[in-house]
């Protein structure tokens, strides 16, 4: 059911949209997003107030802005709530095993370098069980675009603590509060070698859109951490009754600090959430390095690699 509300004339001035706004264009339309969604699977499974849908919204706008051909875009997800993203985006999409989206994507990208391969998964999936792969894909600088939706917990399984859980958080496996050290993803990824690292919250929809556009332009391992509300399993146990409450907290507590030393990129919900683009550097990616190296050491014996399609 679609309702159109055609407004009366107005003189009101547009208030500045939150932080670093990018002017909306007429192209940015729902109908365009629908081409990139499996409409036969909408509505999706995500709860009311969940931020994953918002992140997908921003992501798809970036896909459209960047004019990525639909048949060259591949989405690879692991397991979990964010792991379901692959199932909703209408491109070749792969819902893999828990933590293994990155090595699957590595195989996919290396076997056909013409594909634009995006890994879209959650914090528990990518950083705990999949942590080893995150390290090495970033180190090798595999040309994949990672979007990590961080809702601070494992949501699909009922809100257990993750490496990204902030100190003091009540999670289902930390009924007395979380006391382990929280992983600072931008700092971790910088050490591993990612060429682009940003953190935004789902309040920063236009910035996510822009960041994804920037990642599409870079040839190498890029990483965007998207802080998202999980009202059902994080928020309600931790003072944020609804997704909207958590979004308001993001708005209030986020500080944009582009290019800050990632060691200073603190992430303490309710106190300070440092967001921004932290790293944007150039390093040869895996395939370029391989080509250059083998070309040099093997000379004519090297048959330049263009993909492994049988």
């Amino acid at each position: 059911m679609t309702e159109s509300c055609v407004a009366e004339p107005t003189n009101s001035v547009i208030e500045e949209s939150p932080t670093e706004s990018i002017p909306a264009t007429e192209e940015a339309a729902c109908t365009h997003l629908e081409d990139f969604l499996r409409m036969d699977r909408i509505p999706h499974i995500w709860c009311p107030g969940c931020g994953i849908g918002t992140s997908v919204n921003s992501f798809l706008r970036a896909v459209i802005d960047s004019k990525i051909p639909q048949n060259k875009l591949c989405i690879v997800s692991g397991i979990g709530c964010t792991g379901r993203v692959a199932g909703y985006i209408n491109v070749d999409s792969f819902h893999t095993t828990h933590g293994r989206a990155i090595p699957f994507a590595t195989g996919l990208k290396l076997a056909n370098p013409e594909l634009m391969v995006v890994v879209y998964s959650g914090d528990g999936d990518l950083t705990a069980i999949g942590g080893n792969h995150l390290v090495h894909a970033a180190r090798r600088n595999i040309d994949i675009k990672v979007i990590c939706v961080n809702n601070f917990i494992y949501s699909m399984t009922g809100g257990q603590a993750a490496p990204t859980t902030p100190a003091g958080t009540i999670a289902s496996t930390t009924p007395y509060g979380y006391f382990e050290n929280q992983l600072n993803l931008p700092q971790f990824l910088e050490a591993c070698g990612a060429v682009y690292i940003a953190r935004w919250t789902t309040f920063h929809v236009r910035q996510i859109q822009k960041a994804v556009c920037e990642c599409f332009k870079k040839k190498g391992f890029t990483f965007i951490e998207v802080i998202a509300p999980c009202p059902t399993l994080y928020g309600r146990r931790n003072e944020y009754r609804t997704g909207l409450d958590e979004m308001k907290m993001f708005k209030e507590k986020s500080k944009i600090k582009n290019n800050i030393d990632t060691r200073e990129a603190t992430l303490i919900p309710g106190q300070e959430i440092v967001v921004g683009k932290f790293v944007d550097r150039e390093r040869p990616n895996f395939l370029d390095s391989m080509d250059e190296h083998y070309g040099r050491v093997l000379g004519d014996a090297y048959k330049p690699y263009t993909g492994a399609i049988a």
Binding site: A24, A28, A29, C30, L33, E34, L37, I42, P43, H44, W46, G49, C50, G51, I52, G53, T54, V56, N57, S58, R61, T202, V205, R206, Q209
Partner: peptide, 8 residues
């Protein structure tokens, strides 16, 4: 539209 998680 940009905030909507449900494409609605």
């Amino acid at each position: 539209g940009a905030y909507c998680p449900d494409f609605a």
